[in-house]
């Protein structure tokens, strides 16, 4: 038992060392804030069969909500990667804003909530174009 605990403790220390080296190296993928072109590229990769007709980009460029028919296509940044889900557009429009972020319930145990930054330039729900508001 003692040997097992020692082995686990040593493993934990080694894990900490490896995480420290990874932090020092700074070799994550570059993730520039999204612009419309980058957002459309991401949407095309994640939702290849959907055709977005309206795109809203988060205030910090770390996410996008696109409307495709009755669906809201949601993508947000996680570390240096992206997480994508869809939800009904009408529910996305009703999503509350709290502390500068729109909170989208994704109804998925693997990704329960998306939090995307809003700003004065990019309010939620979007004020224009008008068709974005039509559920």
């Amino acid at each position: 038992m003692t040997e097992t605990l020692i082995r686990l403790a040593v493993s934990a220390m080694l894990v900490a060392v490896m995480i420290g080296v990874a932090a020092w190296a700074r070799i994550a993928r570059p993730t520039a804030p999204l612009d419309e072109t980058a957002a459309r590229d991401l949407l095309a990769g994640e939702f290849p069969d959907m055709k977005p007709d309206y795109i809203w980009i988060a205030g910090d460029g770390a996410g996008v909500i696109a409307r495709a028919g009755a669906e809201a296509l949601v993508i947000y940044r996680l570390g240096d990667s992206w997480v994508a889900r869809s939800m009904p557009w009408r529910l996305a429009l009703l999503a509350p804003v709290h502390r500068g972020k729109v909170l989208l319930k994704l109804r998925d145990p693997a990704a329960p909530m998306a939090r995307l930054a809003v700003s004065g330039v990019t309010p939620w729900p979007p004020q224009s174009p008008a068709e974005a508001l039509a559920a």
């Binding site: 082995r7 686990l8 894990v15 490896m18 995480i19 990874a22 570390g79």
Partner: peptide, 20 residues
Amino acid sequence: AVYEVRDTATSLGMGLGSQI
């Protein structure tokens, strides 16, 4: 080789947890 710190921590944490 691409390493994101939190992703790495998650992978290694899962490895440690699997031992337990």
